[in-house]
Amino acid sequence: MRLSVQPDPFDMGAELNRFTNDASGAGAIVSFGGIVRDDTGTMTALELEHYPGMTEKAIGQIAQQARDRWQLHDVLIIHRYGRLQVGAPIMMVATAARHRKDAFEAADFLMDYLKSRAPFWKKEHGAEGTSWVDAKDSDEAALNRW
């Protein structure tokens, strides 16, 4: 299981290939990748702050919860921090399981929890200045699905 909190960019395709090659015996791989999006057309960068120490711990706990709940061969979580450009990958998760249902549900669960329970905070940088991204009520509500 690889869990990485890093400032550096990563190659989603290469990561997925490696994960797939290492997941021997799995019959299903599901992956999700998050990309820096500019909804306003004026964003110059996205800054991600995090809580070193707690971030790694929280991600480890979230991954363990997924492994306890679904039959998984392996889990991959990569989450970046620092200053990111529009179009750059922010994070990815991948799950390997015997059957697709476990892989899909676990990946969905991981994303919901990473969004609201991993200590990251996003700040948008634009021509007009900077602003912190507010958490959405729908993100918190999404946790109740599980």
Partner: peptide, 10 residues
């Protein structure tokens, strides 16, 4: 003890 706004990961 850490204080912060609701998290916005993912």
């Amino acid at each position: 003890v850490a204080f912060f706004p609701p998290m916005t990961g993912g």
